[in-house]
Write a protein that binds this DNA or RNA. Sequence first.
DNA 1: TCGGGGCATTTTGTATACAAAATACGAAAC
DNA 2: GTTTCGTATTTTGTATACAAAATGCCCCGA
Lengths: 225, 225
Amino acid sequence: MSRAAYQVRPPITRTPLRSEVRRLLLGEIVRGDLAPSEGINEAELSTRLGVSRTPLREAMLGLTQEGFLTATPGRGFSVRALRRSDAEEIYPILWTLEGAALRASWPLPPSRLRQLDQANRRLEAARADASVALARDREWHALLLAGCPNRMLLSMIENLKDHAARYEEAFMRNSGQVITSVTQHREIQAAIRRGDLERALGLLEKNWRVSLDFLGPWLEATTSP
Amino acid sequence: MSRAAYQVRPPITRTPLRSEVRRLLLGEIVRGDLAPSEGINEAELSTRLGVSRTPLREAMLGLTQEGFLTATPGRGFSVRALRRSDAEEIYPILWTLEGAALRASWPLPPSRLRQLDQANRRLEAARADASVALARDREWHALLLAGCPNRMLLSMIENLKDHAARYEEAFMRNSGQVITSVTQHREIQAAIRRGDLERALGLLEKNWRVSLDFLGPWLEATTSP
DNA sequence: TCGGGGCATTTTGTATACAAAATACGAAAC
DNA sequence: GTTTCGTATTTTGTATACAAAATGCCCCGA
């Protein structure tokens, strides 16, 4: 048989344990199930997850590199605390990169505008449940950048959005408030429809800045720096 | 003794093996000593480095996450090939983020301008040796962003510069050409001195774009996509 | 009552062990 | 001569073992 037929795609997907563990842990961190309280006990967590310490540590080292955990030599890992100073670093990077990605996606095809509008309606419908709303909001943003050819840029943005999601999830859970972006999304869509990239970029930045403006005072009040 | 006295700083720095291994490997990758040819043999490399496979794998997983290595499940690690398509993703992110960092450092203190000028003279003096020139160039850029308060942004930029350094190191070694930025740095300094941020940002982007314009055709000629 | 020092225990960081999958190799079939 | 199948070997992914460091605890002394 010709070699090319095999090169198409590895038929079965072998998923390393570390990836699964990573997914689980990141979910727990973002949802706040794994709190920044005390240090993580590796033996305990590994038995809870049903794996050995090796893939667990691999996953945690990865999450440390991405800033979700902190590692102190000799003292192990702990969930990174939510800090106003960190949020004030994350969000500007996020709007800068998302702006760059939108620029790289320009001009958006008309079909994309229809998809965005649909996604925004789904977001509007989900306003009641904060977690669902967050997921829908994220879908809208993903759609916005769907045409961006820069894969590395997109993956960096996804990572930053995981951070943002952690902050917003905690804020909504803790304060009961829901940050809603439906109107802002509409404005952004309108700017895109008019072909006004610069205006869309400004509104996009503003959209993130609103979230940060909610977070700042709340973080100031509840946590350390 | 009061607890506060200890909290100042852990007096001795405990460095995990994985960090040391990471440093060594990254150096070898950037300098091209570890080529993208074939897969990496863990047992072999671990004995060469004098550590066990555990910290070696930890280091390699980290470098994989950063994009310096690729990991294929069941088949281990290999140095990521130099690709034009990758360079065309990396550089735009780099100039976008460095621009954002410069904006966040604005306005630069007059002392910074003097330091930049000195650094640029050191770069000019080192034009002969490509590797030294690259290091000096990097020092100039680091100085440019020295006032940026966004630590996460700076660390992302450093990571991207490691990637850029790998590409430029390979280009210079392979083609014999040296990409020189002395004149462009002077122009950027002049714009800063005039207080013209937007002009400085444009020149900064152009500075990186020149490197990419050297790399593109060379990568097209020598490697795969 | 509070603080300090020494010992027991826990926990981490690294090394090693082991099973399963991937690769290499060779013989047999065509 | 080429290809295909089966087996031996290597290599990876994960589990476990072990040493050193960190933590907790208890007793003692002030």
